[in-house]
Design a protein around this nucleic acid. Structure first.
Lengths: 193, 193
DNA sequence: ACAGCCATGTAACTTGTTACATGATTTT
DNA sequence: AAAATCATGTAACAAGTTACATGGCTGT
């Protein structure tokens, strides 16, 4: 849902061609490690936007190199964009794969929840470490978008880590006063970290 | 990607039919307000899993009411499930719509970033308030999954709020020492909150 | 009698990914 | 001469949503 509007926004800045849009988008989210938009998506999105009348082909440049199909916003496109800005934004309600994995682990008896948590914690710490060293090095020269994205990812990694601690605490609580759960016999808890 | 594996996991617990799977899934994520899985997705997923040989129709019950097509895991399904548990889980790298909205706002000059932040903060506080009162009321009687999901959502809402503060601080910094940005002339910052 | 739950599905559509395919220019 | 970058797209697929369609049983 975001890419569609991002394309409109970038075209509001100035008319652009597909390749340019992709580069601008990637710069905006701080590189492909954060959000790798495939060329295919840009071009198909452009085609769809054109079909919907939100965008139109402005001109075709060709100055040494392949031709560039420049697209521009239509009035309808501008309206759609301002509507987007004026509407609220849902905080993307965490359809988190790990949550599902943990719950399925608890319920199906196929995997040990404590093991899952342990693994995931390691994973998150590793990621966090990678990012914070990255951030420490090149902070001043990086662009705003890049920095903000890093901030965001770090905040959420920390939130996930805090959540894992809470989950563990809650599981411990339950093991002290076991509740009537059918299939899943509680396993012994391995040593912490 | 999650629903597919969730279905496998729930079938590992015991054979089930589509309607039952849906109910179990919804219970697991703590109700439709968190993750509303449509019936259509359950049934199409089951059909795909069957075509892939991970699941097979076990029997058809009919005891007063419509017939229930009971599905069970195949050996291949069990393998897929354990592979899933043994593989790492990416923390769902925040393809957050608000981030894009803010960046496009900054870059396109169409919307005021401070206004966007202000609106979003209000939105998040409201949500947070709704959840914490909800949590305060019925904590002991609720099921584990429900509680964990609430914990998770709250952690991430708080992370988002902290992030908004950081963003504002960074924008203020830039306004004190303006950088060479072409299109977007900085707007006056409206009063906080 | 009607509403609501139980239970199943199909069709059309949207967003996004993967893989393939082409070809020119610039850099090494 | 080869590799990287610029630039465009198509085809097939996967996941998910919306809307539609059907029908029986249960409670008011």
């Amino acid at each position: 849902m975001s890419v569609r509007h991002a394309v409109l926004g970038l075209l509001a800045q100035r008319p652009r061609h597909g390749y340019d849009l992709r580069a601008a988008f990637q710069a905006m989210v701080g590189g492909e490690e954060n959000w790798d938009v495939k060329p295919a998506q840009i071009y198909t999105t452009l085609a769809r936007l054109e079909k919907s009348g939100l965008v139109k082909e402005d001109s075709v440049e060709q100055d040494a190199g392949p031709e560039k199909r420049i697209y521009a916003l239509t009035r309808a496109g501008q309206n759609t964009l301002t509507e987007w800005f004026n509407s609220g934004t849902e905080p993307d309600h965490q359809r988190d794969e790990f949550f599902i994995k943990l719950m399925i682990g608890l319920v199906s008896g196929v995997a040990d929840p404590y093991q899952l948590i342990h693994t995931q914690r390691g994973h998150l710490y590793q990621e966090l470490h990678k990012l914070t060293t990255q951030r420490g090095l090149s902070d001043p020269k990086k662009e705003l978008a890049n920095i903000l994205m890093l901030d965001k990812v770090v905040m959420h990694l920390e939130a996930d880590l805090r959540w894992l601690d809470i989950v563990e605490a809650r599981l411990d609580e339950i093991q002290r006063q076991p509740l009537p759960e059918p299939e899943s016999k509680p396993r012994g808890r391995p040593r912490k970290n």
